[in-house]
């Protein structure tokens, strides 16, 4: 259901690294509840940095309102961010502990925690993985465990940074299914337009810290000149996937 008030409302967002380099040079972004948006762009465009700013991990300048509030260090972000490297997000002794981490920090009763853990693991196809330790999992399992850990927090907005990177075909399919099934507002940063097109209806192209295009996915995908100018390619699919879009 589209709400009149945007869930992400960003104007003139700027971020500069410690060494002075400007990573984001005035981004405007308006996203409504329930939208599934892909942010694409070449390496170094600023996609990951943008996510970190939206989530409040980096302090940026400009107007940022997420679910009506500016991000701040004290309150937990309404954005559930799934990083590129799953190992950074699985820091507990067992998968069960990792998925329970968020709910437990929300001070939920143990019964509710257990319920959320079971649901999140089921949603990612990892039922029964509670006692496993993260370093014994495969790449695809780790990614799904990280997603489960974020899902268990029931965030209003889900943001994925390169969700299909380094996954085999089966894991790619599993991730695509999770993204399609999710009911939340979705932000996907990806160079993999092939998979992204399957999930997202809107495409925003970033390059050099600026927004260079923003529109319906199918329209922009047809603009070969635009894609090429910014290092993107719809025809590219991840090397393991031979499956056509469902």
């Amino acid at each position: 259901m589209k709400n009149a008030v945007p869930i992400i409302d960003v104007a003139n967002l700027r971020f500069r690294y410690r060494d002075g380099m400007e990573a984001l040079c005035g981004i405007d972004l308006t996203i409504h509840h329930g939208e599934k948006v892909c942010l694409a762009g070449p390496n170094g465009a600023g996609k990951s940095t943008l996510f970190l700013c939206l989530a409040g991990l980096l302090k940026a300048e400009g107007k940022i309102e997420i679910a009506g509030r500016a991000p701040d260090a004290k309150t937990p972000s309404p954005i559930g961010l799934v990083f590129q490297d799953a190992d950074d997000q699985l820091f507990c002794p067992t998968v069960g502990d990792d998925v329970a981490f968020g709910p437990r920090n929300q001070k939920l009763p143990e019964s509710e925690v257990a319920k959320r853990v079971a649901e999140s693991l089921a949603a990612t196809g990892l039922s029964g993985f509670e006692p496993r330790s993260a370093h014994h999992l495969s790449g695809g399992e780790k990614k799904r465990a990280a997603i489960a850990a974020v899902l268990a927090c029931r965030p209003e907005i889900l943001a994925f940074d390169e969700p299909w990177a380094n996954l085999d075909a089966r894991a790619c399919r599993a991730v695509t299914r999770i993204l399609k099934d999710s009911g939340q507002t979705l932000l996907v940063a990806s160079q993999d337009l092939y998979h992204a097109a399957d999930v997202c209806k809107r495409l925003i192209v970033l390059d050099g810290g600026k927004t260079v295009a923003d529109g319906p996915m199918q329209n922009l995908l047809a603009d070969k000149g635009l894609l090429e100018a910014h290092g993107l390619d719809y025809a590219t699919r991840c090397p393991h996937c031979r499956q056509s879009a469902a």
Partner: peptide, 18 residues
């Protein structure tokens, strides 16, 4: 990065124990 991930899932200084 780990600290960032912990904060995003509500970390407030101590790991919640079972």
């Amino acid at each position: 990065r780990i600290y960032g991930a912990m904060r995003l899932r509500g970390y407030n200084g101590s790991m919640p124990a079972g």
